[in-house]
Structure formats: structure tokens, C-alpha cells
């Protein structure tokens, strides 16, 4: 009898636990996705064309490619003759519609995310899969991912803007959400 019970637990148990635990885990992922799909983050997590995007409340409903034919092709911080920091200086511009800034070369290096970390235009399921897979997340375990989002200077820079352009939560809160999502089995949505 005990053997039967053990067999049932071994076969059905993990699936049942997974089914029970996936809902809170998916809710946590939803919060992570809120941050990752925010324009302040996603605009530079672009695909193979290496064209950063302009999207966000100041651009209305339709995202558009970065103006002025800008592309990171050749180098993720821009071609040598027109690097990102030609216009994006070390401070967020105080002038309306001025370029956001980031310190560069040494602190928060202003550059596009690697192509395998494309978020812009990707579904929540696709971003989740990319974020979890070590081959596309910088070879990081969940704990390292939580550490990354709470300590990487360019990630932290995302929150250093006025409130209407700021991603939700805080870097510290995001790190805790990532940890909790990992503890919940790090489930990903199916679509």
C-alpha cells in the first residue's frame, strides 16, 4: 500500500505541485514583465537590426525607430563616428524632449543590450524564456539574475528619471520579485 502511495506521489506529485505553484509564480513574472517591457528598458533591448526604439508616453501609441537613422550596427555603443554618447551625455537632459543620459565608460556604459536579449516586440513568454535560459541571459542562475538587476549600473540608471518615465517598482523590489519568482519555480507564461 505504502509502495503504491509512494509511486503515486512520485508520478503525480511533481506535476500537481507545479500546477499548484505556477499561478503565484506567473503573477510574479507578470511584475517582472511590467519592468522589462517598459520603454525605459525595452527601447534598447532590440533585435538584429540594432535600431533602438522611441516609445513611451511622450511618443503616443505608436512606437517608432530611433530618429536620425541611428543604428548600433558594427558596435553596440554605435559606430565610432557616431557613438550613443555623441548625443546621450552623462545626465538626463533637463530640456523637454532632450536626450536621456547615462554615464559611460566606467560606470553605466550606454549601449544596446546584446541581440540575444531582445525584448522589444517580443511576447511575455518569449522574454521569460530568454531571461531564464543561461545561453541567452549571460550564463546566470536565478540568484545571479536578481543580483544583476539590483547592482548593474545601467539597470539602476533606468530608475533615475522623473516619475512619469520611471519603470514600475524599484531595482531592489525587482530583485526580490526575481528571487521569489525563482523560489516559485520560475514559471513562464505559454503565450
Amino acid at each position: 500500500m505504502i509502495r503504491y502511495a509512494l509511486a503515486i506521489l512520485l508520478v503525480a506529485g511533481p506535476a500537481q505541485v507545479l500546477a499548484q505553484d505556477s499561478t503565484p509564480g506567473l503573477e510574479l513574472w507578470g511584475k517582472i514583465h511590467e519592468v522589462f517591457s517598459h520603454p525605459r528598458c525595452a527601447n534598447c533591448h532590440v533585435g538584429t537590426d540594432r535600431v533602438p526604439m522611441w516609445s513611451g508616453p511622450e511618443y503616443g501609441a505608436a512606437p517608432r525607430p530611433h530618429g536620425m537613422n541611428i543604428s548600433g550596427k558594427g558596435a553596440d555603443d554605435g559606430a565610432n563616428y557616431l557613438v550613443c554618447t555623441t548625443c546621450h551625455s552623462k545626465q538626463n537632459s533637463a530640456t523637454p524632449h532632450g536626450p536621456p543620459g547615462a554615464t559611460s565608460k566606467g560606470v553605466a556604459e550606454w549601449k544596446l543590450a546584446p541581440v540575444e536579449m531582445q525584448w522589444f516586440g517580443k511576447s511575455s513568454a518569449e522574454i521569460c524564456k530568454q531571461f531564464k535560459a543561461k545561453e541567452s541571459n549571460g550564463n546566470r542562475e536565478i540568484a545571479a539574475l536578481a543580483h544583476h538587476v539590483t547592482t548593474e549600473p545601467l539597470v539602476l540608471w533606468a530608475w533615475t528619471v522623473e516619475s512619469e518615465r520611471k519603470p514600475p517598482y524599484s531595482a531592489k523590489e525587482l530583485g526580490k520579485i526575481v528571487e521569489d519568482w525563482g523560489m516559485a519555480g520560475a514559471p513562464c507564461p505559454t503565450k
Binding site: G67, M68, Y81, T86, C87, H88, S89, S93, P96, G98
Partner: peptide, 22 residues
């Protein structure tokens, strides 16, 4: 606002928009 390029100079041999660099 670094959109037109008229203020372009080099700082340490790299082009920058001098209107937007403190």
C-alpha cells in the same frame, strides 16, 4: 536638444553635441 548637430565638436577626438553636454 542634440537633435540637429549644429553644435558638434570633438571632446578627446570623439564627436559630441556640445549643447547637451554639461
Amino acid at each position: 536638444i542634440a537633435m540637429c548637430g549644429a553644435c558638434t565638436v570633438y571632446v578627446d577626438d570623439r564627436p559630441v553635441r556640445s549643447c547637451s553636454l554639461r
